[in-house]
């Protein structure tokens, strides 16, 4: 540790890398942005130049229609920014294309995780532990009550409910980017080969995943099929469509939701969920704390989520940490 890390500055609207004048995941338009992954609370449109993985850039192009100033960086590739700052994109295991960003300047190393998880995910390469001085982490599920069960258990629950109700369908609410494709890929891995029906809003993202080599099996659009055809099937939709009029076209849907928040009963009840599936693309409490232990940074900075509890854990384990007040980062659906 030499300097005071004044070259990296957390601001409410993003992390500012001062010598290079670039921003990490800025929530307002800037000249030059480094983007960890394609979720809307990290990837906004309208920047002069956007540096991200090719997958993330493709997702942003799909969402914002423009791709001006797109600068693709492969995993493991290091690029030189202005002011003597090097940036390396490292897999974060969160969704397709998600990356941690390692910044190096004057012998100091800072890792920004973006969002991440440690569980295997058939749709993206796994998180890589990267030693650093400052570890800037998320804490979406930063309370000790959050332990995500093995995904196989949740898949078994889902398939059991489906086979118990051959005349109905199971409607799974899942975040349109990442969660939906992971659930579908895990269903395939569990041996479910039947066609899976999609809400129209999910189609393009699933196709994009397929273009990047993620096999999702046979997908059909709900709009193209009758109620009769969908009996005994799994239907995937965005969480917002779960209690929407849209679902009336389905055969007596059993409402399921794939989210880490489903660990808490009342969260499931708030959404009228009958079949809660505890599936998250974020690190749970054990993953968060284990990751800090493995990275073993000089100091942890916490961007968003339940930062108080993770701060407390640092205090109890005699580690240095601070909370950054980042705005607009909350994943109520994940």
């Amino acid at each position: 540790m030499s300097g005071d890390f004044s070259w990296i500055r957390p601001e409410p609207h993003g992390i500012h890398v001062v010598p290079a004048d670039v921003w990490i995941d800025p929530s307002k338009p800037v000249d030059r942005a480094l983007v960890t992954h394609g979720h809307a609370d990290h990837a906004r449109g309208g920047h002069g130049a956007t540096v991200a993985t090719p997958e993330t850039l493709a997702i942003m192009k799909l969402r914002y229609a423009t791709a001006e100033g797109a600068q693709p960086v492969e995993y493991g590739e290091t690029i030189r920014l202005a002011g003597g700052v090097d940036a390396t994109f490292i897999p974060a295991g969160h969704v397709l294309g998600s990356a941690q960003i390692l910044l190096e300047h004057a012998g100091e190393r800072v890792v920004i995780t973006g969002d991440y998880k440690r569980r295997p995910d058939p749709t993206c390469p796994p998180f890589e532990v990267t030693p650093c001085d400052i570890f800037i982490t998320e804490a979406t599920f930063g309370l000790p009550l959050f332990t995500h069960p093995p995904i196989g258990e949740e898949m078994a629950k889902l398939l059991k409910r489906l086979s118990d109700n051959p005349e109905r369908c199971v409607l799974v609410g899942a975040y349109a980017l990442g969660k939906a494709q992971r659930v579908i890929a895990e269903l395939r891995a569990a041996g479910h080969t039947d066609p899976i029906y999609l809400h129209g809003a999910m189609e393009k993202m699933c196709r994009l995943y397929e273009e990047f080599g993620v096999d999702l099996g046979e997908l059909r659009l709900v709009a193209d099929h009758t109620k009769e055809e969908m009996r005994g099937s799994i239907v995937v939709c965005p969480p917002s469509a779960l209690n929407d009029r849209w679902s009336r076209r389905l055969p007596e849907p059993i409402t399921a939701m794939a989210s880490g928040w489903m660990r808490v009963r009342q969260r499931a009840r708030q959404r009228n969920v009958e079949l809660p599936l505890v599936i998250s693309d974020h690190a749970d409490w054990d993953e968060l704390t284990r990751t800090v232990e493995e990275v073993d940074p000089h100091e942890t900075w916490i961007t968003h989520g339940r930062e108080e509890a993770l701060l407390r854990w640092h205090q109890l384990t005699q580690r240095r940490a601070r909370a950054l007040a980042m705005v607009g980062r909350e994943d109520e659906d994940d």
Binding site: L143, P144, L145, V264, Q266, A309, R312
Partner: peptide, 24 residues
């Protein structure tokens, strides 16, 4: 069994003592 600060943050989030205890 659990640090009191972590307990109360968890209890506050869940809104129910029995459920918080069952999870922790």
């Amino acid at each position: 069994r659990v640090d009191p600060v972590l307990w109360s943050l968890s209890r506050d989030f869940v809104g129910d003592t029995a459920e918080t205890a069952s999870l922790l």
